[in-house]
Design a protein around this nucleic acid. Structure first.
Lengths: 178, 178
DNA sequence: AAAATATGTCAATGGTGCTGACGTATTTTG
DNA sequence: CAAAATACGTCAGCACCATTGACATATTTT
């Protein structure tokens, strides 16, 4: 293998190659730092990003069932199990037997879980707010349109079903919870 | 623990809580799908995202040393070792003894490594290009400014040192390689 | 000659994802 | 009512990627 090694290429790939490296790299670095804020908080609890995602969506869509959560996160039941169990054991999430179908377990945040979700979202929101400084409403709108367009079309329904999640007009409430 | 369980909160967290959930969630979904394109290609090679990141930066900054690469990626030497070894063994990356300091190993892509890096970047660039459709130059500029502002200030030098990476005017070449 | 540096490597660990299989409670179907 | 389907939980095992700590080697600096 060392024999067949071709020669080192000493020139850098650039946007001349027809690739938008500027935004590719910006997106990579931006997301890395975007997730670093909650990561630090989570470490204090012995939690990871998986816990964050579960906690986030349970807070955003209270009463969703285990199956619905799996669908949103696009992971398997076994992957969710460990993480969900820890969140329940630590009193951040609570399960309620489904009213109509008692096989179902509706997932709700507790006050503790709500508080943690907010604590995790706060630095992220602050970072976004600061990054938006100096821009006008049109800029924000362009950014939202861009991010939304980056999502696979089939999956755009995911955030359309979130409260005030879509860029759409009405938004409305989740599904009458409360 | 079940005894002390507090009551389920049945109302959803919304942007009323002062948090910008719209962009938080948009960013999450956008990045997930953004990485899914190369992930599929990498799977054919038995590679993961770690390989992608190493290959990308070796192509963007040919001749960087192991220590420099560790600094860019913010991972440990041991995490890099396995991945880098595989890339070298498969002939995607080649090591050259440092000219001035022979302890150093300069990392370069081979033709094979350059081709794979381009193949991985192409779908991402296409996705970005499509997401930018319908917007004008001002929109693109706003998006670039936003993403750049999302990065920790101390780390913004990272993409300023990339060829045509910064939104800045001159950009210039890396460091005279070639 | 001794200390510092750049790299490579070994062993062990943790978090998070996966697949497959199986058990239980509950609802739906025939 | 009995059988099948569904929702969930759990067990065992595997893979990937990251971690820390310890140590070896070659090379450069002091």
């Amino acid at each position: 293998m060392a024999e067949s090694a071709s020669k080192p290429i000493r020139t850098a790939i650039t946007s001349d190659d027809g690739i938008d490296f500027a935004i590719i790299e910006l997106f990579f670095f931006a997301y890395r730092d975007f997730t670093s804020d909650p990561d630090e908080i989570l470490a204090d609890y012995g939690f990871g990003r998986a816990h964050h995602r579960v906690l986030h969506f349970v807070n955003r869509m209270p009463g969703l069932t285990v199956a619905e959560l799996l669908d949103v996160l696009k992971i398997t039941k076994q992957s969710l199990a460990r993480v969900l169990k820890q969140l329940i054991d630590t009193g951040h999430v609570i399960q309620v037997q489904g009213p109509r179908d008692r096989r179902q377990r509706e997932l709700y945040p507790t006050a503790k879980g709500r508080a943690l979700a907010l604590a995790l979202a706060r630095p992220q929101s602050r970072r976004i707010h600061e990054a938006l400084q100096g821009g006008n409403a049109a800029d924000r709108s362009a950014i939202e349109r861009f991010l939304k367009a980056m999502v696979n079309p089939e999956l755009r329904t995911q955030f359309d079903s979130l409260p005030s999640g879509g860029a759409g007009p009405s938004a409305g409430k989740t599904d009458g919870n409360q």
